[in-house]
Amino acid sequence: MKKKKIFLPINDNDVETLEAGDNVLLNGEIYVARDAAHKRLIDLIDNNKNLPFEIKNSVIYYMGPTPTPNGKVIGSAGPTTSHRMDKYTPKLLDLGLKATIGKGKRSLEVIESMKKNKAVYFSAIGGTGALLNQSILKNEIIEYEDLGPEALRKITVKDFPVIVSIDSNGKSLFEIERAKYRDKFKLEV
């Protein structure tokens, strides 16, 4: 399968070339945030305060790693379920966030906001945290250390494997692929 390499930060041109179903290898810096960090980021936005990182053209990975063992860069580092962040995502997309990485479906509101703001949603394979660990070169906490596994991080990745599951036109692999494999399973009951 052909894989597209993307170098971060990601711009509108990159986003427009990506189509649902593309296998992508991400290279560069990615911000890492999940439930609790998102809540704090949104509180900052609601109070007209600056975010602790440049959100324009950035990528957020929904992930909370296991602690880093001695001599390693990071622990297990697979995606968490994205829809818990749906409530927060449109506000971040409006500020220039270009891509999110997680697992599972997104809400209609998020997809509409992705179309409006030209953004893309990548799926990483859930539960493959040991494998994804191999593509992470650097890992640092940039804010909210008190949240433990939910701290806001910046990671540097090399050929981090993802698949475009919803593109900037709103084309969704969750719908397209599902339709192809409906009623294909055979089992005598």
Binding site: S76, G127, A130, L131, N133, P149
Partner: peptide
């Protein structure tokens, strides 16, 4: 996806990294 899931199990054992970050 299934190939990667199986690879991940081997990778976890070999590198002593938990299978999944949600332990």
């Amino acid at each position: 996806i299934l190939e990667n899931i199986l690879l991940n199990f081997d990778c976890a054992q070999k590198n002593n990294i938990p299978i999944c970050q949600d332990t």
